[in-house]
Design a protein around this nucleic acid. Sequence first.
DNA 1: AACATTGTTTGATAATGCAGAACAATATAA
DNA 2: TTATATTGTTCTGCATTATCAAACAATGTT
Lengths: 261, 261
Amino acid sequence: MENRAKTKSNLIQSVDRALQILECFSRENRELGVTEISKYLGLHKSTTFGLLSTLESRGYVEQNLDNGKYRLGLKLFELGNLVHEGLDLRKQAYPFLKELVDKYQETVHLVVNDRGEAVYIDKVEGPGAIRMYSQVGKRPPMYCTGVGKAILAYMPDKEVDRILFEKGLRPFTPNTITDVDKLKAHLAEIREQGYSFDNEEIEIGLRCVAAPIKNHKGEVIAAISVAGPSTRMTWEKMNILAISVKEAAVNISRRMGYKGI
Amino acid sequence: MENRAKTKSNLIQSVDRALQILECFSRENRELGVTEISKYLGLHKSTTFGLLSTLESRGYVEQNLDNGKYRLGLKLFELGNLVHEGLDLRKQAYPFLKELVDKYQETVHLVVNDRGEAVYIDKVEGPGAIRMYSQVGKRPPMYCTGVGKAILAYMPDKEVDRILFEKGLRPFTPNTITDVDKLKAHLAEIREQGYSFDNEEIEIGLRCVAAPIKNHKGEVIAAISVAGPSTRMTWEKMNILAISVKEAAVNISRRMGYKGI
DNA sequence: AACATTGTTTGATAATGCAGAACAATATAA
DNA sequence: TTATATTGTTCTGCATTATCAAACAATGTT
């Protein structure tokens, strides 16, 4: 339609800083003070205060009047919900996730690719007492999770390089693949098989099987996985799961308009 | 702790505008173009573009490459989830419960609807020696308690039927409503008033006033009540309480993201 | 009672965001 | 097809605006 080739980043400083402030908050740090934030971002206290005040006036943060600290506000909840609803991938995928859980009694995840990062957008938990701990909205690493590798495997080589360089290849366990070339060979294998395993690469005792979901253009936009404790996830089960997970992923891809196999 | 008396709004223009952009999007307008937004907000096209680019660079909006339009991004989903988790009802409700106790010197309860059953999840006890005996975690009957009736009143008719059939309508006192049609008429009345009374329906000598709490979707997820011995809970006091309890419930609902009145 | 640390306010300075116009690419109309 | 309108994007100079620094007020700590 138009000239859609964005050039160099011409960002608006104050806006970028305000957004950075929002991203300071996390599960571990639900409440932060002005000084705390300004130290973290390297901004002056008064600058931070101005940004916070603006965010506050529109409900993106709110202040705890007991201690003066700030926390994320309800406006974000509202907008987040809007996004959540719009993710029709989620709607389309849900019945297939449910089916997998019912069949294998293990937790199933749905993850999307957000500019090189994976984001959990849904999960259906299995009945077992020993469960994989995960939270919707979280961003797991790409190179050492089933879903992440399933997504990486279908990316252009250049983008894979960029992501791996940016994030690094920290070893979470002895099984984590930390060598770029080894990982790339592994990704090629995944691409050929159409599914990926995570064999305790991010956490000892956790295995999963994942498969990529494609959109109408055939681009990999997401992935699903079935995850569980290694005790239950035997290799026999993993191989059976591979077929089922791949099948479910293909079905979801079709729902998203994918015309391929 | 600090000087917490904010004066005049000294907002940062560009940040405020960026936030305004986010708020342009809605269920009806999931995708908007640069020109569209700039017209709506009365900004210059290039200004809007700069703001959008900054928002995009951090994932707060994303572009539909097919038509160049923008939509809300996954970062908002991520942050919204964070807010959602932090919003546990109990934390939000507590100050309002405390306020009611301080004002009326009677025990206040917070109850959630757990798939058709009421569960006490918090209480703040009044100072009086004659107290209502209750335990957090307990599940009182729905049809003969103030909180239970406040929750029932907003359920789909079919679910009300199911619950009443499952649990039955055992008479605890001569005041217990044991007739289904009478109870349903009573629930309709509660729905109209926005609060419910318990007039010695579960125990002689115990009266209470309750009101429903709604979530962001307007669904009744919980209720609060002020309860005390009939000797102190005169009808005059009950009517005064009705207003206060309803008000507190509405305030808590807002904290839970409810946008209605 | 002295001190350190918070969030908040103010005002001077210059960096920064903004509008206008031009550009490129598409969609629509003739 | 050709012409026109409309889209998203880029560029640059000017003046508005965001920034920093320092001071303030109120609380928590020693």
